[in-house]
Design a protein around this nucleic acid. Structure first.
Lengths: 242, 242
DNA sequence: TGAACGAATAATCTCGAGAAAAAGTATTGA
DNA sequence: TCAATACTTTTTCTCGAGATTATTCGTTCA
């Protein structure tokens, strides 16, 4: 578990330990909905599924508590963190608060490297957005790809913020919102034209117009909330298997 | 570990499990500086000290990673999270961002219960502040008491905020800053007249003057930063035992 | 002398089994 | 039929020992 705290992307980091490996796989499965919200996570079953010992799996679950993807209740085991429309609203608003502040700091302090990083990330994202208009055959992998680049773009925007804490919290919230987005994407793929928004955000940021950039960013994040709001009403009645 | 995430005060919660017990004691010892920043946390030694098994202690350490009080490096064990003046500045600024927003929300949404809670907490805090003027004999326990009530007052102010996430993050940051404050208190007990600040904050909040209240709160939190800034320059050269 | 290599030591990581607790099931009695 | 109780099963929690990896210390060679 190299660099477990206050260090954003332990995404593609090669796991140095069995605990870290199980942690990564479990997290992916929770975000992708393999383990739906509210599901009981029984160590005895999961240890076979993930091919590690019981103690090791417990430790992986404990690490997931850090990301608030798993909740632990003493003497009563672990569960996948539940979801709700209220929670997603909270996540979205808090993300706006943190991400706009980080963007403001970046615009104030960012140098040439920061700008170059944004240009590159925007370019890659634009290409991915083009592909989304392609055949339905590629939709799934293309969406997966777009997801990664979208995140990379957002990360690049705030990369010049000196606040490790804001980035840490922003990270947790992004991960959380990804879980919601995956679910809504599953039903209604690519609901809106995001490219124009990204371009406006890109322009305002490089023009160092902090007020305009943060306004666009806030609006941009808020729109995701809308697309989840229009889900079937019974959607958030957590399955709570068993 | 009952209610381990997104639920503020697992302070005086009776531990339902050995892991939770060890976690609580370890956290207290880290915040109070018994385990100084940067110290290597060897499981083999600590398991005897805290009277639990090795696996149990590992789990407690993993839980502390959630609070960012411990950092884990794969295959190289655990350490107490290091401190630095930059980190404390970051903590302080991020706290201001979150806490002023939470206060704003509370002022907008808070009802009678919220008001009553603030009045009560302010009263208790005022009494504790009176005692701080007393004999040196009581200084330690009185400061301890003041610390608790100070936190209770701050919590009461933002209790009406509907954002669980802001409160969760604010909680982590408060805990972090407590570690810094303990250290500075140790050398320079009660550096400034906080009562006037608290009173102004109290008045502005109950008057529902959000702009004034948040300005005072920001100023209030910032002052803590000043008192740490004026520490000996070599203070943050982490001991890093071993 | 000092740098590089290798052995010894110490620490971490991992696992499975036993103890404790919770959840589920069946039985009994009203 | 229903509720309460006792029993059984499942699951969680806890521990110590073995395997793996990192670190330290001593030796050798340039």
């Amino acid at each position: 578990m190299s660099e477990t705290v206050l260090t954003p992307p332990r995404e593609n980091v090669e796991p140095k330990t069995l605990v870290e490996g199980a942690y990564q796989r479990l997290r992916r499965d929770i975000i992708e909905g393999v383990h739906p919200p509210g599901e009981k996570l029984r160590v005895e079953h999961l240890k076979d599924q993930y091919d590690v010992g019981a103690g090791t799996l417990r430790e992986a679950l404990l690490l997931l508590v850090t990301d608030a993807l798993v909740v632990a209740q003493g003497q009563r085991g672990f569960r996948v963190a539940p979801i709700s429309i209220e929670d997603f609203e909270d996540i979205t608003r808090t993300r706006i608060l943190l991400e706009t502040e980080a963007l403001r700091q970046s615009i104030a302090l960012g140098g040439e490297d920061w700008e170059a990083g944004i240009v590159a990330a925007f370019h890659r994202l634009s290409r991915a957005e083009q592909k989304l208009g392609g055949q339905d055959d590629y939709v799934h992998t293309a969406a997966e790809d777009w997801e990664k680049r979208n995140r990379a773009f957002h990360d690049a925007l705030i990369a010049a913020s000196p606040s490790r804490w804001i980035r840490h919290f922003q990270n947790i919230l992004y991960q959380q919102s990804e879980r919601y987005r995956r679910i809504s994407l599953f039903r209604r793929p690519i609901p809106r034209d995001v490219h124009a928004e990204h371009e406006a955000l890109f322009d305002a940021t490089l023009a160092r117009d902090a007020d305009r950039a943060t306004a666009i960013l806030a609006e941009h994040i808020l729109r995701t909330l809308e697309s989840v709001r229009h889900m079937p009403t019974d959607f958030f009645t957590s399955p709570a298997k068993h």
